[in-house]
Nucleic acid binder design. Sequence first.
DNA 1: GTGGTCTAGACCACG
DNA 2: GTGGTCTAGACCACC
Lengths: 127, 127, 127, 127
Amino acid sequence: MFFEIDVSNGVPVYEQGARQIKFAIADGAFEPGQLIPSVRELARELAINPNTVARSYRDLQDQQVIESVRGTGLAVTKSAPTTCRSDRIRVAREHIKNAIGQALRSRLSQDEVLEIVQEELKRVQQN
Amino acid sequence: MFFEIDVSNGVPVYEQGARQIKFAIADGAFEPGQLIPSVRELARELAINPNTVARSYRDLQDQQVIESVRGTGLAVTKSAPTTCRSDRIRVAREHIKNAIGQALRSRLSQDEVLEIVQEELKRVQQN
Amino acid sequence: MFFEIDVSNGVPVYEQGARQIKFAIADGAFEPGQLIPSVRELARELAINPNTVARSYRDLQDQQVIESVRGTGLAVTKSAPTTCRSDRIRVAREHIKNAIGQALRSRLSQDEVLEIVQEELKRVQQN
Amino acid sequence: MFFEIDVSNGVPVYEQGARQIKFAIADGAFEPGQLIPSVRELARELAINPNTVARSYRDLQDQQVIESVRGTGLAVTKSAPTTCRSDRIRVAREHIKNAIGQALRSRLSQDEVLEIVQEELKRVQQN
DNA sequence: GTGGTCTAGACCACG
DNA sequence: GTGGTCTAGACCACC
């Protein structure tokens, strides 16, 4: 599997877990109707507590990204791919907006902001 | 005074307090050597706990933005304006970098990121 | 056959199976002495696990709705039609009582409850 | 306080807890802005585990009935009274509809349903 | 003191 | 085997 958890970066483990599942769905790695890894299985793989995984999965159920099939497991909902994809874009957009808003409030000029953005895009491109 | 605290936005109150002082210094509202408001005074004004203000001031002392003048109060250091200004830019830059990094990890293309940024800059310009 | 299972509505699958058999008996679709579908047959038809059907049938035997005929299968008991019919009414009655009790505890007045009931009866009548 | 938990009735304890808080808000026992009992305090009072109370409170936060005030406690939101009141009616209505639907599917006539309802209303009235 | 997160381990219903 | 619930107890940041 391709999941990774960083316990030391402040972001709650259960959120990281939920986000990775949503990313996997957005990327088509999990299709509607398909069962996602069981609580115990994912907990073993990520070396975290099953309850923490359960918390991730509960949140995903609240968001109607997965649904419980009794005694069988948790399955990706029909609407999940769409919501996961749009979620991802929406969140990214939100962060960019916040960062820019804060930069302008910090007296950076529009040109300076644009320059930082282009710098960063170029830097990432090289890696 | 022009300080504002929002207890409901996740950012620790003491950090908001410290940042507002630093912003005021960066803007030249407080000059080197000038005394900043006393713990009790600021606590009253912001309607927050004096312990919280004390925590803000302690952090600012650790960052050598203010220094204790025995028997008198806390004064802005000589180096404060410079460090406050560069701090602010550094933090803003950091946020933009993070936001862009996250956007690219979310499969937004470089063009899409650039478009969002320009959109947002234009939007702010109009207000 | 006219059986339907909904795995996603919280009601245990084995209970749905047992209830459908009892409904069929109450409706006269199965007569006393008649053999009901075999575990494997019903499991195939409903696309559920044979263990689950077996569980339904075990419950029905406990309730003396069906009885094992050695080497032959499971047959509807003589008393089954009567008990199935009265069961169904008893359960429905119970649910209505619970719903009303809860509504009153939720501060709905008796008139409001009656109004909701009549509304709902009228609505169903039209379909 | 006026909270009661029945651990043996199938309804999860954390749901009972959340519902009681919502009922209290709907009844005006808690006003917007007011702090609800702390996790530890309510856990002590109900003789249940603090984590279980925390789960109730987390659900209430998801429903925007309460909001966290850092280091201080959990406060009733401005919108809570309205949503709690309408929630209560909506849920009761839903239950009545379900019960009636099931009764009709069980071959009870409309008159029989109405009779059961009136019986039950009268019975409750006497207590 | 407050809530938030995480771990550990138990018991249950269900398939 | 599966998820769901509950308990117990730890550590953290914050006020």
